[in-house]
Design a binder for these strands. Structure first.
Ligand SMILES: [Mn+2]
Ligand SMILES: [Mn+2]
Ligand SMILES: [Zn+2]
Ligand SMILES: [Zn+2]
Lengths: 139, 139
DNA sequence: TAATATATTTGTAATCATTACAAAGTTAAA
DNA sequence: TTTAACTTTGTAATGATTACAAATATATTA
């Protein structure tokens, strides 16, 4: 379910979302830098190209993309939210030491609980914390 | 692994954490109101008994209890953090409509991913969002 | 084309939960 | 009692995010 760039554009058209220059660049950045960037990182990555760029525009664009279901927010506590264009079901690990966010394969749709039988589930987020292998090997 | 009150007191003793009057009251509140209260709720629940109580004390106490591994923070995005003295592995569901937080049974320790083989995992959080059965039936 | 309406971007100000900090108060040790 | 260590309290600072309105760009209409 990792959409191609064209599939994303198609989805946006379907949902009637106008792709301005700024919005296109934010989308580009997310697509080409699948490292769960923060608003700050997106801003720094684009402001050379678009000197007038405002962070508010990035926030607005991300909100639009999130509401359209094309981007996912990863709000680890104690750090800026970061954003993920990869909609494949997977979990996120944040390293206490280097603060980096790692994807890990896990089908969150397989997590069932009969306590939620009559609930309508919209989002399933799995967040792990600890120390990554790289940081462990540095000790 | 839901500790009895005495087990909690024992753990605190072991870890050299002094139980002041205020800390005891916060602990009491968490133990008697296992509804994932916020700092605000804890404050409102205790300030009649302790008119001089400060929210800073509640934040401090919670930090101490969290570091001691006796309380878990539930930081759903877009709302105050709430706090859980139930350390049994379980997931949390937040209803879009009534904003209430529900527990659901799920053994998070069973969530394995070979991508994390060499990682040291300290915390496993499962957060679901959607609409609860009560709100669904109201429609 | 010009005039008008609509959509988007931008910069600044406001928000608000949380944290930092230091003074005041409490308890323990000498 | 004196001193030190700990705890609480109130206030100020923080910082990511949101609210807002002016400026700019784009689309529509006459
Ligand atoms: Mn990811
Ligand atoms: Mn719980
Ligand atoms: Zn690391
Ligand atoms: Zn509900």
């Amino acid at each position: 379910m990792l959409l191609t760039y064209d599939q994303i554009l198609e989805q946006l058209k379907e949902k009637g979302i106008n792709l301005s220059y700024q919005r296109l660049k934010v989308l580009d950045f997310l697509y080409k830098n699948q490292i769960h960037p923060t608003v700050e990182q997106i801003y720094l990555g684009l402001v050379k190209q678009i000197p007038t760029l405002s962070k508010t525009t990035i926030y607005n664009t991300l909100k639009i993309l999130i509401n359209a279901g094309l981007v996912r927010e990863i709000p680890f506590k104690g750090r800026e939210s970061c954003y993920d264009i990869n909609l494949d079901p997977h979990g996120h690990f944040c390293c206490d030491s280097c603060n980096q966010i790692y994807d890990f394969q896990i089908d969150v749709n397989l997590i069932k609980s009969k306590d939620l039988e009559d609930f309508k589930i919209r989002d399933r987020d799995v967040y792990f914390k600890g120390v990554c292998s790289r940081c462990l090997s540095k000790i």
